[in-house]
Amino acid sequence: MKILASIVLSLSSLSLLAQSAPQQPEPVEHTYVIHNFHTESGVTLPEAKIVYGTYGHLNAAGDNAILLPSHYMANMKGYGWLIGPGKALDPEKQFLITSELFGNGRSSSPSNTPEPFHGPRFPVTTIRDNVEAVHQLLTQELGVKHLQAVIGFSMGAQQAFQWAVSYPDYMDRIVATSGTAKTYGHGIVRLESEINAIETDDAFKGGDYTTEPVKGIQSFSLVWTAWLFSQEWWHQELWKTEEPAGRTLAQVIENYKTHFIPDADANNLILQMRTWEQHDVGTTPGFNGDTTKALGSIKAQVLYMPSATDLYFPVTDARTEAPLIPHCTLLPIPSLWGHPAGAGASPADEKFLNGNVAAFMKGQPLHP
């Protein structure tokens, strides 16, 4: 069954099925470096590194590419639930690019950037910063002239919406699962509570720690876990469907507390939460903070797939945004698995996502 023990690996490969499938394709890893990268905060990074993966090959026309931008603290392998034999995306026919967000510890991050931008001095990078960096990667490094689609889960969905606003003619479609075009007040409160859990550990030392603030990270993990699944998921004890079998609730909670994101760096965790909470397509230059106007500018066909039980990005937020987007189909995922439903957290979720994404890509009827 599905295993959700860590976001780095879990929401970068949510299922043992995806991890163990003998024919599961693996991406080729690359690093792209941008010199003197200007961030929206006004800070210029001498070198901005983007780690990314590729599956398949770009065709001669340069137009068989699909971008899958990563989610919170995830790596390039975060879309295994959607890629491979019998799934929606086929590396034998499509050129798939999986980009890693700034702050994940591999792309430029507080933990791996030299002074004067190391640790807490690393600038807050926005979703648009990530989109701009990857746009340079696609156009200047890979020669991608046009995207068939941008497909994203969670913070990847935030990026998908931003791509559609920033570069409306660059892709034909976007798919957004378990993520919205703006982070609303309730989500910001959640993120601030998780940031506060880390920062109140005395070992954090304002971000200038010499050893990781373990207690703070564990407190962060517990807060995060409380929001990860739906209340009904816990009520029905669906954690019993995860491996290893036979665990008690106390053991499940302790596992999330101590192993939620193995080897996480506190400043990296905080940076990506700041990226998340600041996002709003309405603050894109030219829209003057008008989210409605920004959403109305989207030209791509949109498949908007919130989880029906998501506590991070509530389905009510998606129902508010979807009518503002031209050519948008709202298709909630009927799941009790909360936020991770948007990354195939259960076999039923994975089947629902793959069937509908495949149909959407082919212009065929969807299956609610």
Score class of each variant (00 low, 15 high):
83 I>S: 02
246 G>D: 03
229 F>D: 14
255 N>D: 02
240 K>H: 11
57 H>A: 10
162 Q>L: 13
115 E>P: 13
121 R>L: 15
151 I>N: 01
9 L>C: 08
349 D>I: 11
330 L>E: 06
12 S>Y: 04
48 A>E: 03
319 R>D: 04
314 P>T: 07
174 I>A: 14
151 I>E: 01
94 Q>R: 07
96 L>F: 08
166 S>G: 03
226 A>E: 15
310 D>M: 11
169 D>M: 00
78 G>Y: 04
266 A>R: 08
282 G>S: 09
237 E>L: 15
32 Y>G: 09
311 L>Q: 14
52 Y>G: 05
337 W>D: 13
147 L>H: 01
274 R>G: 12
141 E>R: 08
347 P>M: 09
184 Y>R: 11
205 K>R: 05
56 G>M: 02
262 P>Y: 11
288 N>R: 01
225 T>M: 15
178 S>W: 00
160 A>D: 09
338 G>I: 08
13 S>Y: 12
195 I>Q: 15
144 V>D: 00
213 P>D: 11
130 N>I: 01
61 A>H: 00
22 P>R: 13
245 A>D: 00
317 D>H: 09
128 R>C: 04
335 S>W: 11
16 L>W: 14
34 I>W: 04
81 W>D: 09
215 K>E: 14
128 R>W: 08
6 S>P: 01
78 G>W: 04
347 P>I: 11
332 P>E: 05
115 E>T: 15
266 A>W: 05
306 P>V: 11
285 P>A: 08
51 V>K: 05
368 P>S: 04
74 A>T: 13
131 V>S: 06
79 Y>C: 05
166 S>T: 05
281 V>A: 13
332 P>C: 05
